[in-house]
């Protein structure tokens, strides 16, 4: 049995925040932010907005694209690092908001690789017969967790809010993408190089300043050098691995739809893979969205599909890297 992506959707908050608007608070120059990341603006949700509400809008769009109704969904996966609540996960809120049936709802916490994990799990559910139509939501509201001070300038400049969604189905339809393979890996030695420490049992669960945790432990932290060095190599290796085991080379790939981390990193990966650069094949949206973590790959994929540039038999390579560190690459092929 095969599994296909039959619909995609995205939703971005209305408010666009330019580099000029935040640069001074972050101790940076607007052009410096663009040069080091490729980002000119990002969307930030209004205070009080829930992550699940963005996800629900993206899923509505994906269902419409797949020509499905809410009651057709028989499994929901939700990838986010910024849930509505500590407990339970955010998928039940999407289930309620869209009026989905009493189906399994599973949150995934694999950071910027959430789309790939959801792709792998969704494919496994469909090909095993456990589900026929899996709805995947990927959403973040990261603006609420950013330290907008010079101390965290180089990380806080990156992140935006947004949501994406796709439907994994056992039935192909016009414009569907067959999910061929997903390669994933993790090395927990780098667990402290990217992430947010609290709340949690390791650094304290009750509140800032208690049980050894400091205020900084509640904000995003990043060892940027470690992220760049490891991501550059591990993403390339993952792409080569998934291509090799499918008897393909980078030259066979028409579209690279990566997690939108940083424009310089994407260029490095394309160079490392010797991915052809003469045909506009690397899909990038981060100039106007920033890094939307879990949601970014889906936003890029939806943008590409709605431009109607994908042709039958095109191969799509989907690489990602995130906190953990965890990384991987997915491989899809467009159907007729």
């Amino acid at each position: 049995m095969k599994a296909f992506i039959t619909g995609t959707g995205k939703f971005l908050p209305e408010r666009s925040v330019s580099n000029e608007e935040i640069a001074e608070r972050l101790g940076l120059q607007p052009e410096q932010i663009f040069k080091s990341s490729g980002i000119r603006s990002r969307r930030w949700a209004e205070a009080g907005t829930t992550t699940s509400s963005l996800a629900a809008e993206a899923l509505r769009s994906a269902l419409e694209d797949a020509r499905l109704a809410a009651e057709d969904v028989d499994y929901l996966l939700f990838g986010t690092m910024t849930p509505d609540r500590f407990i339970p996960g955010s998928s039940p809120s999407v289930q309620r908001a869209l009026g989905l049936r009493e189906i399994p709802c599973l949150d995934i916490r694999a950071t910027c690789c959430n789309a790939l994990y959801a792709l792998q799990v969704g494919k496994a559910l469909v090909t095993s017969g456990a589900a026929r139509r899996v709805a995947v939501c990927l959403a973040e509201i990261q603006s609420a967790w950013l330290d907008l001070s010079p101390q965290s300038g180089t990380i806080s400049m990156l992140f935006g809010d947004g949501a994406s969604s796709f439907i994994v189905s056992d039935e192909a339809q016009t414009g569907a993408l067959e999910i061929l393979d997903v390669h994933l890996a993790t090395d927990g030695a780098y667990v402290d190089d990217l992430g947010i420490r609290c709340p949690g049992t390791e650094f304290g669960a009750k509140g800032a300043g208690q049980e050894g945790a400091g205020p900084a432990d509640y904000f995003a932290r990043m060892n940027g050098q470690s992220v760049i060095l490891q991501a550059s190599r591990k993403i390339v290796a993952a792409c080569q691995s998934v291509l090799t085991r499918n008897s393909l080379t980078p030259a066979d790939v028409r579209w690279m739809v990566p997690h939108q981390a940083n424009a310089n990193l994407l260029a490095q990966v394309a160079r490392g893979l010797r991915f052809p650069t003469d045909r506009d094949g690397v899909v990038t949206v981060l100039e106007d969205t920033g890094n939307t973590s879990s949601a970014s790959m889906g936003i890029a994929l939806d943008t590409l599909r709605r431009q109607e540039r994908v042709r039958a038999e095109d191969y799509l390579l989907l690489p990602a890297f995130g906190a953990g560190f965890t990384w991987g690459a997915g491989l899809c092929r467009a159907t007729a």
């Binding site: 550059s232 490095q268 490392g272």
Partner: peptide
């Protein structure tokens, strides 16, 4: 720098 180091190691 970090990006050049990756190319250098290759």
């Amino acid at each position: 720098d970090s990006f050049a180091l990756v190319d250098f190691v290759t």
